[in-house]
Amino acid sequence: MKAHHFEIKVAGGKLVVADVEEDGKVVTSATISGDFFLEPESAYDAINRSLTGASITEDTDSLEARVTRELAGLEGVNLHGFSPRDVAVATRRALLDARDLTDYTWTIIHSPVLPSPVNVALDQYLLGEVRSGARGPLLRFWEWEDRAVVFGSYQSFRNEIDPDGLERHGIVPVRRMSGGGAMFMEGGNCVTYSMYLPEDIVRGLSYAESYAYLDSWVLAGLKSLGVNAWYVPINDITSDGGKIGGAAQKRVPGAVLHHTTMSYDIDADKMAEVLRIGKVKLADKGLRSAKKRVDPLRRQTGVPREQVIDALIASFTSRYPSVTGELSADDIAAGERLVEEKFGTREWTHRVP
């Protein structure tokens, strides 16, 4: 028999703990515990019973269905602070020997001011460092003073970016290694961070679940600034005052890059001259509406960008074991080499013409 253990804290809810034993084929015993509330008492045994006999390869959806079916046979069932889905996630993560964000000591880096292409290139370099085991998980906040459009790995340069706008405003186009959409970035107009983590931290989570899980500390940090924010699947952060930003991921064997950009105070007129997609959105929403949608952090918090970053770092360090670090000269040099070899080349920038 092999034993497995995993704990999850339900967003806005309670702790759910899964202790599971299996024989290499099926779950032989399961005990779900936590500080949740459950009625009637018989429902507790039903949950544990539902998981016993499950194949160790069953996915989260299948495990959730097992729990739901078993509870459906009882009258007056009420789950407070958790759901069958939470039980299934905890069980699946246990069986996969997943790790939690709290199981590692993180290094937090607030980068010096760097050219945007170097910031993009560092994502590939630092992901490789974590993947190889040379470093533990990292959280890095970007700083830059130039003007750039950072766009997704699979976006068409021709369809997404206006070359005349680039030239007019002196903007550098940079294709990143992750998918997702384009972001217009001037110094100080966004808050951008990257997380580099071992794959076992997201093991057993769907893509949508992993995005929300990895950014939960961000929502708490924004709340400390008076912003009621939440996740909209798959990768958007929004609030009572409108969309704040979006995340993207790149997964390689053994490691994950997760990075998020949130709008602080973006020049909507300039953005519309640079991003073709920006023109479509502006035409659809109207310029006045668009301006409201691209300056949420400045408008909703009323504090300087630096204070927003400080609040986010404070939220992260209050939840997860963390130390402060910095980029070395060798790290920056590695990023600069990757710009020369890849991220600054026409071949990479226009790989999807």
Rank of each mutant, 00 (worst) to 15 (best):
H4M: 13
F6R: 12
E7V: 15
E21K: 12
A30H: 12
T31A: 13
T31W: 08
F36C: 06
E39N: 07
N48F: 05
T52P: 08
S55A: 13
I56M: 09
T57P: 08
D59F: 10
T60L: 04
E64T: 14
R69I: 02
R69C: 02
L71D: 06
A72L: 10
G76S: 09
L79W: 06
R85T: 03
D86T: 02
V87F: 08
A94R: 10
D97T: 07
D100K: 05
T102W: 07
D103Y: 05
W106Y: 03
T107E: 15
P115T: 03
N119C: 05
Y125C: 01
G128Y: 01
V130C: 04
R135N: 07
R135H: 11
R140W: 11
E145H: 08
R147Y: 11
Y154T: 09
F184H: 14
L197S: 04
R203H: 10
E209M: 04
A212I: 00
S216P: 03
S216H: 14
V218M: 15
G221M: 14
G242C: 00
K243N: 04
A248G: 05
Q249V: 00
G254Y: 06
G254R: 01
V256I: 04
Y264D: 05
M271P: 04
E273D: 12
V274P: 03
D284G: 12
R293M: 14
V294H: 04
D295N: 07
R299E: 02
E306L: 07
A311H: 13
S322H: 14
V323S: 08
A329I: 12
R337F: 00
G344Q: 04
R346S: 14
E347Y: 05
T349M: 02
V352Y: 13
